[in-house]
Design a binder for these strands. Structure first.
Length: 396
DNA sequence: TCTGGGGTCCTAGGACCC
DNA sequence: TCTGGGGTCCTAGGACCC
């Protein structure tokens, strides 16, 4: 085992971010929820003090309003920009430490990397260094797992979280692998979702150990290559590669409305907001996009109402990050898929086909125009950064 | 009354080509 | 009319993730 795979998972990330940026909340029950106009969101993350009150991730707020009010639980509105910022900070902290190789961000609160080590004590030592570096600089507590593959490292992290005796770091060496997999239910394995669990259950597989113990040829013939890779990873054979990217593949924003919207005109305002938000993020990472997708749907929980959902996309003639241009395209899409007679509960915008903005101009005639547009976008972003998002926007 | 939001990747099937 | 095989590209939708 020359290379050891490392997984880092931030504990109750959204809630930890809120506590880290507001020290007065330390040790208190804190709940982070998405919010809509009537305060009808669900719990996205919560501190252990909030969990102790019986609250759970995923609960609609209206069901637990009493518990929150009676126990002085602090309710924070989720702030993705803040979480992305802290996540980037963690990324930089670990990179500058130069202990972890091939360090990649897997999601806003999870990271993977490699350690050129095989001795469990050494692994534990260096992992602790990384872990402490993150927590002391950001205030975010993290759990770490180390093993022979990414999938096993993630399984190890699961143990690190579950058992306090690990103090947040679980190193899973080859000789303990089998035991660990026996303790892991098949649906808890990273990469095995609902559909795969159903198929595996039919084969009599209940634990990760059952799956890892299957005959390789049978796994290969019965299941997808993705599942076969997971199988190999559970057996200690690294089979998953993680790409590091400078640019995201897509940027999206969507929203569930507190009050359902019935007309095209009512939908226009939020859609302009989505485009503006996505375009700002696109520019902040110096990208352009050439695909824009719009989707909308009615309230699927209301079976008494007629249901409709649809999406449409358009390819732009050239990559752009120009808000008015993207807004125009989005409103055309809205017009295309909007149907009267329904009450819309959700809508969103996705920017795709993202490429690096190399300042390339389509042709000489648009060059001057583009340059002026670019300046305008720059000024808008600066103002919004300084005075808060949406201080300034585009009417048309 | 009220039930999230933001991502990536794989695969099957169609269109088109030789 | 019918008949082939191989290849590529694109797209929609599924599956999975946090």
């Amino acid at each position: 085992m020359d290379t050891t795979y490392l997984h880092i998972d931030c504990n109750t990330f959204f809630a930890s971010c809120e506590v880290a940026t507001n020290p007065g909340l330390a040790g208190k029950p804190v709940v982070v929820a998405n919010d809509n106009e009537v305060g009808g969101g669900i719990i996205l993350a919560l501190t252990k003090e909030a969990k102790a009150l019986g609250l759970q991730r995923g609960q609609p707020l209206f069901q637990v309003r009493r518990i929150i009010e009676n126990n002085g639980v602090t309710l924070c509105k989720c702030d993705h920009n803040k979480y992305r910022r802290i996540s980037a900070q963690i990324m930089n902290l670990v990179k500058e430490q130069e202990v972890v190789l091939d360090f990649v961000q897997y999601s806003v609160d999870e990271f993977f990397g490699q350690l050129p080590l095989s001795d469990p004590d050494e692994i534990r030592h260096y992992t602790k260094m990384v872990k402490d570096h993150i927590t002391s600089n950001t205030g975010i507590p993290v759990s770490c797992g180390c093993s022979q593959s990414y999938t096993l490292a993630k399984t190890a992290t699961h143990f690190a979280k579950q058992y306090p005796a690990y103090h947040g770091i679980c190193v899973l060496p080859p000789d303990k692998r089998k035991r660990a997999l026996q303790l892991t239910k098949i649906n808890e394995v990273w990469g095995i979702g609902r559909q795969s669990v159903k198929q595996l259950m039919l084969q009599g597989v209940a634990t990760a150990a059952d799956f890892a113990g299957m005959e390789g040829q049978r796994v290969r013939s019965l299941f997808s290559t993705a599942l076969y890779n997971t199988y190999k990873e559970l057996n200690g054979i690294p089979s998953i590669t993680l790409r590091h990217r400078d640019l995201q593949q897509s940027i999206s924003q969507s929203h569930t409305f507190g009050v359902m919207l019935g007309t095209e005109q009512e939908l226009e305002a939020p859609i302009r907001g989505f485009v503006s938000h996505c375009a700002t993020r696109l520019r902040s990472q110096k990208g352009t996009c050439d695909i824009i997708t719009l989707f909308l749907s009615t309230n699927r929980h209301r079976q008494d109402l007629p249901q409709y959902s649809n999406s449409a996309f358009t390819r732009l003639p050239a990559g752009t990050n120009d808000t008015p241009l993207l807004t125009k395209a989005a409103l055309r899409l809205l017009h295309e898929i909007f149907r009267p007679g329904y009450l819309y509960k959700q809508a969103g915008v996705i920017l795709g086909g993202i490429e690096e903005d190399d300042g390339h101009q389509l042709d000489l005639f648009t060059a001057q125009h583009d340059e002026r547009r670019r300046k305008l976008m720059e000024i808008t972003d600066t103002i919004n950064k300084k005075y808060g998002t949406d201080s300034i926007g585009f009417i048309k």
